[in-house]
Design a protein around this nucleic acid. Structure first.
Length: 264
DNA sequence: TACCACCCAAACTC
DNA sequence: GGAGTTTGGGTGGT
């Protein structure tokens, strides 16, 4: 039986990192219900969504051993639709060698499209490839600022993954590059198709796994924001598995704060 | 039959 | 020197 994140709620008002955050709801991995998109009532958000994000939004806490995430619907459906369309026009994805990866000596096309944007001069190395940040676009700045106002964290870089349908996917990995500011969470904004997202503890992977720890599964909805707080990326791998029934695209933006070696 | 979970392959980086 | 990392394909379960 698949175990999805459920909806046990307890009110609390402060984030674990000590930053000021809006009132949120706490959610533990204790029952078998998915996070439901219907929980979000666009009526609550309609008037303020376009201009102001500092209002409280209903956060859900996702916790397990060494895993600490916050999930919320950041944008109304209408605004998420608009932002999705704008990104489809603005974002330029990698092609050629940058869109390939070498695995076990074989070269494959990456099963999704990728792009990197951020502050001028920033670079980010992952999967052995160094990437330069393109200048922020209007839509990306808007989304970045919305995330900042909501979370209290600032970001200087965004990695964009576009999944054309449920065939496009991403294998299990951790976002634990040394360039990332360890005090800043990774903020993941989803637009388009809702997709399953799976966390697996590093000690519970493979046949010879040392421990039995249940994976944490959630569904990332259109317009949602998932904050991965420290130390989540130390202990937990995450993946976006193939879902053949999904026929429409999804754009995922992971906002990060990068500290270049010269700044350290 | 379709979908999904899980495991494994080897060359390379850090 | 050793641990970790990438994706596609094969296998088995539902």
């Amino acid at each position: 039986m698949e175990k999805f994140v459920g909806q046990k709620r307890e009110e609390h008002s402060a984030a674990n990192d000590g930053s000021t955050k809006p009132l949120r709801k706490k959610l533990k991995v204790e029952n078998d219900e998915k996070v439901k998109e219907e929980e979000f009532d666009p009526e609550d958000d309609e008037d303020t969504a376009l201009a102001e994000f500092s209002h409280p939004i209903p956060w859900q806490k996702i916790e397990a051993e060494g895993l600490d995430c916050d999930y919320a619907l950041l944008f109304s459906k209408e605004e998420a639709d608009r932002l999705f369309r704008q990104l489809e026009e603005e974002v330029v994805y990698s092609t050629g060698q940058e869109a390939k990866v070498q695995v076990f000596g074989k070269v494959y096309n990456i099963p999704r499209k990728q792009a990197t944007y951020g502050d001028e001069g920033l670079t980010y190395t992952y999967s052995g490839v160094k990437r330069f940040a393109c200048p922020w676009t209007q839509a990306l700045e808007y989304i970045r600022d919305a995330v900042t106002k909501t979370t209290g964290h600032t970001f200087n870089f965004v990695l964009i993954n576009r999944y054309k349908d449920g065939q496009d996917h991403m294998g299990e990995h951790r976002d634990d590059e040394r360039e990332l500011d360890p005090l800043c969470p990774i903020a993941s904004v989803s637009l388009g198709a809702a997709r399953d997202f799976i966390f697996r503890h590093r000690d519970a992977r493979g046949k010879e796994s040392s421990r039995q720890i249940e994976p944490v599964k959630l569904e990332l909805a259109h317009g949602s924001l998932l904050l991965m707080n420290s130390p989540t990326n130390t202990f937990w791998y995450h993946s976006l598995p193939v879902r053949k029934k999904v026929l429409v695209p999804r754009i995922n933006l992971t906002f990060r704060r990068i500290v270049q070696p010269s700044q350290k």
